[in-house]
Nucleic acid binder design. Structure first.
Lengths: 109, 109
DNA sequence: GAATTTGGTCGCAAAATTACGAACAATATT
DNA sequence: AATATTGTTCGTAATTTTGCGACCAAATTC
């Protein structure tokens, strides 16, 4: 296992950011957010990539905790993991709302 | 050049997320936000990695538009690019605040 | 029980990322 | 003009990511 060189919040935020750091995965999250039926097939249809690749991206999002899947044989239904979604939202919000040092406002032009 | 398979906002958001998808780069942004002196050397001191690697991460953040650098020979001063920072903030805010479909609330347990 | 449907997994290839030391460039100092 | 300081670039290695086709597994249907 990789050792932690940074504080846990930094690692966690980076982990969420990394999971969101691909357009296909952003597209998946946007799609899931607005759908009430979110089967694998629907997601696959929406994306310009092979199903094996879609499955990989879904696994990445699941590993990051941003989504979860449930088997409804023979289909698989995915949805946003609201608890972790809210946590990610909070971490990003804290990150972007930290006050920027004013002295430094025009350090670079 | 890579063709765009996704909408521009999705690509842009993913680009910002990707740039933030490493703990060292999160740590750099946090450090820059609170410092009024933000020379390369200060950033390097703060991180547990070699200076060549720090330089690479700074380049990644610069390419993403999140920071900018200015030469103050013999040092280099970095700071947050406030315009793009604000845009990233907006894109993430829109993303996390899109309303989630209610019908789907308990699609997975 | 063969065929179909739905997705996941495997194996592979190409490309990108991460990390480092060494060498380099530019300026300032001795 | 040598030396020192500051930070980038180069070359390299190891790992990870991305993407795909082919195959596999489970359940249903013919």
């Amino acid at each position: 296992m990789a050792e932690k060189k940074y504080c846990i919040k930094t690692e966690t935020l980076a982990g969420f950011a990394k999971a969101l750091g691909h357009p296909a995965r952003i597209a998946i999250m946007k799609f899931l957010a607005k759908q009430d039926t979110c089967y694998f097939g629907d997601i696959h249809e929406e994306l310009p990539i092979a199903k094996a690749t879609v499955s990989q991206h879904l696994t990445a999002l699941k590993d990051a905790g941003l989504i979860q899947g449930e088997i409804e044989t023979p289909k698989v239904k995915y949805c946003i993991n609201r608890e972790n979604w809210a946590y990610a939202q909070q971490l990003f919000s804290e990150f972007f709302n930290m006050e920027l040092c004013e002295k430094n406002e025009d350090c670079c032009k």
